[in-house]
Design a protein around this nucleic acid. Sequence first.
RNA 1: GGCCCGUUGGAGAAGCGGCUUAACUCACCAGCCUUUCACGCUGGCAUUCACGGGUUCGAAUCCCGUACGGGUCACCA
Length: 476
Amino acid sequence: MSVRVRYAPSPTGHLHIGNARTALFNYLFAKKHQGAFIIRIEDTDVKRNVETGIDNQLSLLKWLGIDWDESIDREGEYGPYRQLERLALYQDYAQQLLDRGLAYKCYCSSEALEAEREALKAKGDDKLHYSRKCLHAPDQDAPHTIRFKVPDDVAYTFDDVVKGSVTFQSEAVGDWVILKRNGIPTYNFACAVDDHHMAISHVLRGEDHITNTPRQLMIFDAFNWERPQYGHMTLIVNEHGKKLSKRDETIIQFIEQYKNLGFLPEALFNFIALLGFSPQSKEEVLSREAIINLFDENRLSSSPATFDKDKLAFINNRHLKSKSLTAIMALCLPYLKAENIAQHEDTSYIESLVGVFQDRLVYGAQIVDLYHDFFDEAFELDQEALDFLHSDEGIVALLKHVRDAIKETDTFDADTLKHIIKSSGKATGMKGKMLFMPVRIAVSAKQHGPDLPKMMHLLGKDRLIDRINATLNAIA
RNA sequence: GGCCCGUUGGAGAAGCGGCUUAACUCACCAGCCUUUCACGCUGGCAUUCACGGGUUCGAAUCCCGUACGGGUCACCA
């Protein structure tokens, strides 16, 4: 049987990191097994469908570098790929179950069901299952749902690709709705019918779906269809071990936000691939090709994957470093323009600026923060900096020498500035750290930063002189 | 509460009964390099795998129990 996997998003909003991960692993699985990757749109919750939801998600998947073989924009022989266009199919199967006595019509109102559940809860009942009140109800011409009649005493066992053997007893599941009052199937029913009809061989999805699996198996068994193989990928959790919630503001969770911040798609691809999967490799910074080659579903982790922001930063930084200066300039330019820090014409300025920060840049938009950190007018020496400046008698003379040399120079570039620092050192007897560090502090107020002469060049002559004077005043 | 799943260093994470005196990565620290900073390179960083029992010649690895954490129980997907 050929490998066919699917990613089944609902068009309810933006591409979440967890969904991107599901899509990515299915894509990798298909690549590895020379199978087909299908995207099926699960739009059965008509109230929540968002008009542009799907186009937006698909374009972001493409941006990440995830491609598919069949979907709404690439019809294969298993279409349509949108569930609302397949309603007749589900209705037909629901009718078959009805005819065979494996399902029944339920005339209970939502309110009545809600009350029933509340009552059970109040009684302390563990199961909260539907009472089967309508199991033998006479056929009526009234609005109804169709419920699947869950068989008694059946153990649903499946060999999960990541969890191993998992069993659910049928008693754990109440008679569940397969067709809603509006004639649209519920998720579990549509999903099972489509997985069969689209010849899906493997279902890789998040662990939050694991309790849905017995319901879907019931449908496969009822029609005697061959079950696909399931694999439930571990949840992505935050640093406190909680499932990533879309409301959690401490973690950026939507792919679009990363794109807007100037993260690299290949870095995100890399990072997401490491969420619940660990390649047999000493290296964690990997290209898409390397990840495709290294992917192995047997190395999917069964313990929760922690979303590690530091790791993301590291990975993106490393991918960024391997880029050409031109590429990084292109990445940073929009942010610099938006802040009026630079314009298209200033290529040599942008080149110097980006070049100076290239090593430490984590994402494109960060260039603005780095710029402000080092070039803003605000210039304040903290206690640690002052202590350092007071640590040697010769520092005042050194700074004065540097300042005067800057004043007098006609050429103003990084090489000249480097030369000025060196000759000031010679003239005042300062060297090594005691030469560079006072100058660094006097022009940036910081003890860490980019290459000193280059940074000084970017600061400009006037600002250098002002800052050195301010420093001299501060330590006088 | 029922049912499912998980628990390895400051952080991520390998390991699937002897090759583990627990890989690799991040962070951190030290040294080298650079007349500074950063990059880079080298080295250091868990006598121990939630806890308690058991199986075994041998357990982080298997079994049972406890604790803790999480997921799920819709006419949502």
